[in-house]
């Protein structure tokens, strides 16, 4: 129901007022039921602006949430989020390189998604190499390597950003994340990655339940821990990199949604990751609806809204659960 509400919100709410009934009527007309009452402008707003934005919001919310939950499981660390191994810092550096005019025709803002993706995956690969060379790595060494790589890349990104005062604002806008530039093109670009990576992460829920007893005990229970870690981190990072390359750095979703879902359905990763897909998708669309409407026609940065909405929701559920236990 929450997800359906998010879909309706995403399509019907916006600076151009279009009633829910007329949007639903238009949807029905596309499957041969009745006739649309929308003008061609309204139809363009719905199908070329709001619909791709809605779909990208759904897949971004789902991917960031499931990746956050997966990271929390694989590192047995409640503070883990999808950016733990340097995805954000790497993507930030790549995007800044594209946005800032470094001269000699080496960069152009049109390359932002591509360079953000390359930067994100490069950062994770570097973390993996530094943190113990692949299969021999353990969770702690990877986290520490992620911190080191993130710090290094963030400092490079800051240096690059400060070197070009004309593009600082554009870099900041990208860093705060936004769905404003969503298009069907960006949806088709990220969707294959997100579908495959989300499926892998959700299927790994059982393995993450086993890993909650630690690496050594997991191995005695029959889990090939290092191989599972490689696959799960690879899928989470790839999916996150794809999303980040399209929408920038949307913070807070990846850490807060799995925690809210855990409070609602318990600690089993089998259930937690499945529910996080749905909850995260709906959460980000609601947050985006707020971001693009409260100060219309200008927009709030999406990362600001996810934190402003997410933190009180999280604290409320946490206090309600504590009340239950008393």
């Amino acid at each position: 129901m929450g997800l359906l509400g998010a879909v309706i919100c995403g399509l019907a709410v916006g600076p151009t007022p279009i009633g829910v009934g007329r949007v639903l009527g238009d949807l029905a007309s596309h499957v041969g039921l009745g006739h649309t009452t929308l003008s061609s402008l309204q139809s363009t707003v719905i199908w070329q602006l709001r619909a791709p934005r809605l779909v990208l919001g759904l897949v971004a919310g789902a991917m960031l949430s499931v990746a956050g939950g997966t990271y929390q499981g694989v590192f047995r660390n409640p503070l883990a989020d999808p950016y733990l191994l340097g995805v954000a810092a790497g993507a930030g550096l790549g995007a800044t390189f594209a946005i800032v005019d470094v001269g000699a025709g080496l960069s152009t803002p049109a390359w932002t998604p591509l360079l953000a993706f390359v930067g994100a995956m490069g950062a994770v690969a570097l973390t993996w190499l530094v943190g113990g060379r692949g299969l021999r790595s353990n969770a702690s060494s990877l986290i520490l390597a992620g911190v080191a790589v993130s710090s290094l890349l963030t400092s490079l990104q800051t240096f690059l950003q400060q070197s070009s005062s004309t593009s600082i604002a554009r870099v900041y806008i990208w860093l705060l994340g936004s769905l404003a530039s969503s298009s069907w093109n960006s949806v088709t670009m990220v969707l294959p990655y997100v579908v495959v990576c989300t499926v892998i992460c959700v299927l790994a829920g059982g393995a993450l339940d086993v890993m909650s007893v630690g690496d050594d005990e997991s191995r005695t229970l029959g889990l090939p821990v290092r191989r599972v870690r490689l696959i799960v981190i690879g899928a989470s990072s790839l999916g996150t990199a794809a999303i980040v390359s399209a929408v920038g750095l949307i913070g807070f979703v990846g850490i807060i949604v799995p925690h809210i879902v855990r409070l609602l359905v318990g600690t089993s990763y089998r259930r937690l990751l499945q529910i996080s897909v749905i909850f995260g998708a709906a959460f980000l669309v609601y947050a985006d609806t707020i971001a693009r409407t409260v100060m219309a026609p200008s927009e709030l940065p999406l990362g600001v809204v996810t934190a402003l909405v997410g933190a009180p929701v999280f604290v409320t559920i946490l206090s309600l659960r504590r009340g239950d236990r008393r």
Partner: peptide
């Protein structure tokens, strides 16, 4: 094991 990890919530 001598010191088993017992994950709370399970």
């Amino acid at each position: 094991p001598q010191h088993p990890v017992v994950p709370s919530g399970m």
